[in-house]
């Protein structure tokens, strides 16, 4: 038997809520939303952790503008506090090197990260997952048993088609879905509401053409229209 499996529950025991940010497709704003959500919850006075589980393409460190920060080693690994949020990512160990991980490698890497990371007592742990219902998402469901899902989409037919499958999968597995966030909204289209009637729409984030320039600058990011929309959503969680 693998002893690492037994320690995961203990590592997550001090966390009140685990929020997994998920979606059907890449490029719909999961990572940015997860990061801004974590920062916003922290600014609202909560104790917050942020975990980047996109192990082959970690990017939250870029959004947070982190460089030269590493976790502390103390009977495991203590995630460093970045802009008020405890932040953990595989990038501490891979740097700028590509890490081509296949299925079993992703599960093993995740198991290891969950087993060694010592979060403090947190109100929220926000988890950024890669798109779809691949290894990382299935492992979140398997190992982070209390995870609640925040499902992202855009009004694109391509994103909607895939997010429906994510929602069906989560529903089939009785995994709690907090709601759907429609990102990059343009106009008054009701297409998302109509397509995803079975789950609550938690919020809508308008397309923000200035947001790209703010990546890496947390203070400016938090002053954006995007962050204002995420704050409204954070208050509903």
């Amino acid at each position: 038997m693998d002893p690492r499996l037994k320690i995961i529950d203990k590592r997550l025991a001090g966390i009140k809520r685990i929020i997994a940010v998920s979606g059907g497709k890449g490029g719909i704003g999961k990572s940015l939303t997860a990061s801004v959500l974590a920062l916003t919850l922290s600014r609202l006075g909560h104790r917050v952790g942020l975990l980047d589980l996109d192990l082959s393409a970690p990017s939250l460190h870029v959004i947070l503008g982190i460089e030269g920060i590493y976790p502390k080693e103390e009977k495991g690994i203590i995630p460093p506090e970045v802009h008020g949020v405890e932040f953990m990512s595989i990038v501490y160990f891979t740097g700028d090197k590509p890490s081509p991980l296949r299925g079993i490698d992703i599960s093993n890497a995740m198991l290891e990260l969950l087993a060694v990371t010592r979060w403090s007592s947190l109100d929220f742990l926000v988890v950024d997952t890669p798109p779809g219902i691949g290894d990382a998402t299935m492992d979140v469901i398997r190992w982070m048993k209390r995870a609640e899902f925040l499902v992202m989409t855009t009004s694109s037919k391509v994103a909607l088609e895939t997010v429906k499958k994510v929602i069906k999968m989560l529903t089939e597995l009785n995994v709690p879905i907090i709601g759907v966030i429609e990102n990059m909204k343009m106009g008054d289209s009701e297409v998302v509401k109509e397509a995803l009637k079975e789950v609550p729409i938690l919020g809508e984030i308008d397309f923000d053409d200035k947001i790209e320039d703010l990546i890496g600058d947390v203070n400016k990011l938090l002053e954006s229209d995007f962050a204002a929309s995420v704050k409204e959503i954070a208050l509903k969680i």
């Binding site: 192990l55 080693e73 690994i77 595989i90 501490y92 160990f93 891979t94 740097g95 090197k97 590509p98 890490s99 081509p100 991980l101 490698d105 992703i106 093993n108 890497a109 290891e112 990260l113 060694v116």
Partner: peptide, 13 residues
């Protein structure tokens, strides 16, 4: 050292 902390990062090195 990196592999010690997260063995799967062997795939990066």
């Amino acid at each position: 050292e990196a592999i010690h902390f997260a063995p799967e990062v062997a795939h990066a090195y």
